[in-house]
Deep mutational scan, measured.
Amino acid sequence: KELVLALYDYQEKSPREVTMKKGDILTLLNSTNKDWWKVEVNGRQGFVPAAYVKKL
């Protein structure tokens, strides 16, 4: 599985998104969309802005 690092805090704005804190390590589930990547964090799956994370 591929991991990404949260570069910034992000507060979810819809049920399809997830909240993350700067420094969190997230599991990358899908990065086919250039703007929104699907990740898993704390057992929850959802989208975060691709610009807010970096592949490890």
Results as ranks from 00 to 15, higher is better:
Lys13Val: 10
Lys13Leu: 10
Val53Met: 06
Trp36Ser: 03
Lys13Ala: 13
Trp37Ser: 03
Glu17Pro: 04
Leu29Tyr: 04
Asn42Asp: 14
Gln45Ile: 15
Ser14Met: 08
Gly43Val: 03
Val48Met: 01
Tyr8Arg: 15
Gly23Met: 03
Ser31Cys: 10
Ala6Val: 11
Ala51Val: 10
Gly46Ser: 02
Pro49Phe: 02
Ser31Trp: 08
Gln11Pro: 07
Thr27Tyr: 12
Leu56Gly: 05
Leu3Thr: 10
Ile25Val: 12
Glu2Arg: 11
Leu3Ser: 08
Thr27Met: 10
Glu12Cys: 11
Glu2Val: 13
Asp24Asn: 07
Arg16Cys: 14
Pro49Ile: 02
Tyr52Cys: 12
Lys55His: 11
Leu7Asp: 02
Ala50Met: 05
Lys34Asn: 13
Leu5Arg: 09
Asp9Gln: 03
Tyr8Met: 13
Leu5Glu: 14
Lys13Gly: 08
Phe47Tyr: 14
Glu2Trp: 13
Val39Met: 02
Asp35Leu: 14
Gly23Asn: 08
Lys38Leu: 15
Asp9Ser: 09
Lys22Pro: 04
Asn42Tyr: 11
Ser14Asn: 14
Val4Phe: 07
Phe47Met: 10
Val4Cys: 11
Phe47His: 06
Lys1Arg: 13
Ile25Ser: 03
Leu3Gln: 11
Arg16Met: 15
Tyr52Lys: 09
Leu3Met: 12
Val41Phe: 15
Gly46Ala: 04
Ser14Arg: 10
Asn42Arg: 12
Tyr10Cys: 02
Glu12Gly: 15
Lys1Gly: 13
Leu29Gly: 01
Trp36Glu: 04
Ser14His: 13
Gln45Ser: 12
Ala6Gln: 01
Asp24Val: 05
Thr27Gln: 12
Lys34His: 12
Leu26Arg: 01
Tyr8Leu: 12
Gln45Asp: 08
Lys54Tyr: 10
Val53Thr: 04
Val48Tyr: 00
Asp35Gly: 09
Tyr8Ile: 11
Gly46Lys: 03
Trp36Leu: 03
Val39Ala: 02
Met20Asp: 00
Arg16Val: 12
Lys21Ala: 10
Gly46Arg: 02
Ser31Gly: 12
Lys21Thr: 10
Trp36Ala: 02
Trp37Leu: 05
Gly43Trp: 04
Lys22Ile: 07
Phe47Trp: 15
Ser31Arg: 07
Gly46Phe: 06
Phe47Gly: 01
Lys54Gln: 15
Ser14Gln: 08
Leu5Lys: 08
Trp36Gly: 01
Asn30Glu: 15
Asn42Trp: 07
Gln45Val: 15
Lys55Pro: 13
Val18Ala: 05
Lys21His: 11
Trp37Gln: 02
Glu12Ile: 06
Trp36Cys: 06
Lys1Val: 15
Lys34Ser: 13
Pro49Tyr: 03
Val48Phe: 00
Ala6Phe: 01
Ala50Arg: 08
Val39Leu: 03
Lys55Thr: 09
Asn30Trp: 08
Lys34Ile: 10
Gly43Leu: 05
Ala50Pro: 06
Gln11Val: 15
Gly23Lys: 02
Lys55Phe: 11
Glu17Tyr: 06
Met20Thr: 04
Arg16Ser: 13
Ile25Asp: 01
Leu3Phe: 14
Asn30Thr: 08
Tyr10Arg: 02
Arg44Gly: 04
Asp9Glu: 05
Val39Asn: 00
Lys55Gln: 10
Gly43Phe: 06
Tyr10Ala: 01
Glu17His: 07
Glu17Thr: 08
Lys55Asn: 08
Met20Glu: 00
Glu40Lys: 06
Lys21Gln: 11
Thr19Phe: 04
Lys1His: 14
Tyr10Asp: 00
Thr19Cys: 06
Val4Gln: 01
Glu2His: 13
Asp35Val: 12
Val18Cys: 09
Lys22Cys: 07
Val41Asp: 06
Leu3Trp: 13
Ala51Asp: 14
Leu7His: 04
Tyr10Gly: 00
Gly46Cys: 04
Asp35Met: 13
Val41Thr: 14
Leu56Phe: 10
Ala50Thr: 05
Val48Gln: 00
Leu56Glu: 05
Val53Cys: 14
Arg16Trp: 15
Lys13Asp: 06
Gly23Thr: 02
Asn33Lys: 07
Leu29Thr: 05
Gln45Lys: 11
Glu2Lys: 09
Val4Asn: 01
Thr32Pro: 04
Gly43Asn: 09
Asn42Lys: 10
Leu7Cys: 08
Lys38Val: 14
Leu56Cys: 11
Tyr52Asp: 06
Leu28Gly: 01
Val53Asp: 00
Leu3Glu: 09
Gly46Tyr: 04
Leu3Lys: 11
Ser31Asn: 09
Leu26Tyr: 10
Ala51Trp: 10
Gln11Met: 15
Lys55Trp: 09
Thr32Phe: 10
Asp9Gly: 06
Trp37Ile: 06
Ala50Cys: 06
Lys38Glu: 15
Lys54Met: 14
Asn30Gly: 08
Tyr8Phe: 13
Ala50Phe: 02
Lys34Arg: 11
Ser31Tyr: 08
Asp24Leu: 05
Ala51Ser: 13
Ser14Ile: 05
Glu12Phe: 06
